[in-house]
Write a protein that binds this DNA or RNA. Structure first.
Lengths: 186, 186
DNA sequence: GTCTATAGCTAGATAGAC
DNA sequence: GTCTATCTAGCTATAGAC
């Protein structure tokens, strides 16, 4: 057995960046190959169903990160809630590179409509909302308020990513994150 | 002089829909031709610099609509402010087809990064913010609060478009609009 | 498991008839 | 001003050597 030249998470991280900045249609297999350090044909060895399978793998990779860096932390009752929300906000900030990186869900959902990856996108968004909603209930929000705040949290993150990037003013993203932090720190 | 087979605003409206749903890279000249009712080569007659010029024209077309259906109305002091904000919210709702349509700025900014249409996008977003900020000042907000609320208005619109589409739940967009309405109706 | 080479297709763009 | 026909470059995907 020949060793893999590039390991799986390096590969996926590189391709994640391509999909984020170029979208699904815009990301060519040449782009993906270059970013990963492999040749096109080698990508087909690892992902026999081509581009669609690559994008699915990248979506799963992101979802694992979501579980690890957001859901699990928010649900970890051994840590004080103030610490948890702080840590999660930090993770979100670094995940989106201070607002400079585009959300994969958003870039993938363009071009493809919802047909190709609709369920993956929906599931991922629901996990965000559920994680924050459960956290909200734990710190004393009513069921309804918790869900409402969780939705607003996701809306604020997505919206501030769009606006801060459009205006080239990344303090907007930072402010949005601290606004979210305050929602959960009363 | 041969008459134009399709007039300018029909042409642009059709192509706007293509760019919104497919993004810049995803929108092929065949798509654009089909949506407009003309052949590819005819599009090159009207837009000699090709796809980039088409996208610029569509961005300008959207910007004209923004002026007419949002900026001018918000600034029209002959109408009571409550009526103005109601009318503008209605226009936003129909412009985004109740949340089902994607924002052109968002779809265009993908793939192209900010390199190609960065200034157009920035200008357009600034017009949104200025229009709402001026309106906010007029109804009594402080300079700072007015700008802060205007930014949050844009963030909420963009974010709720993303989330409601991702979840396939367009009541989220509706709720976001009524939340915005309340900001300006106290 | 990775590579070079290439097939088959569609993209954006152009030429020239009417 | 609009059309059909066509060019070249790039795309996704595959074949087959190592």
């Amino acid at each position: 057995m020949r060793p893999q030249k590039v390991n799986s998470s390096e590969l996926l991280q590189g391709m994640l960046n391509v999909f984020r900045s170029k979208g699904y249609e815009g990301a060519s297999l040449n782009d993906l190959a270059t970013s990963s350090g492999l040749q096109k044909a080698s990508l087909y060895h690892r992902f026999p169903n081509g581009k669609k399978e690559i994008a699915t793998a990248v979506l799963n990779y992101v979802n694992e990160g979501l579980q690890k860096d957001l859901c699990k932390i928010l649900a970890d009752t051994t840590i004080p809630s103030n610490k948890r929300i702080m840590k999660v906000i930090e993770n979100i900030n670094s995940f989106y590179d201070g607002g400079k990186a585009t959300c994969l869900l958003r870039s993938i959902s363009l071009n493809t409509g919802m047909e190709l990856f609709g369920t993956e996108i929906k599931d991922n968004m629901n996990e965000w909302i559920n994680a924050f909603a459960n956290f909200g209930k734990e710190i004393g929000f009513s069921e309804e308020t918790a869900i409402e705040n969780a939705r607003e949290t996701l809306i604020t993150i997505q919206g501030s990513l769009v606006v801060s990037k459009g205006l080239g003013d990344f303090t907007i993203f930072k402010k949005a994150l601290s606004k979210i932090e305050h929602i959960y720190k009363e």
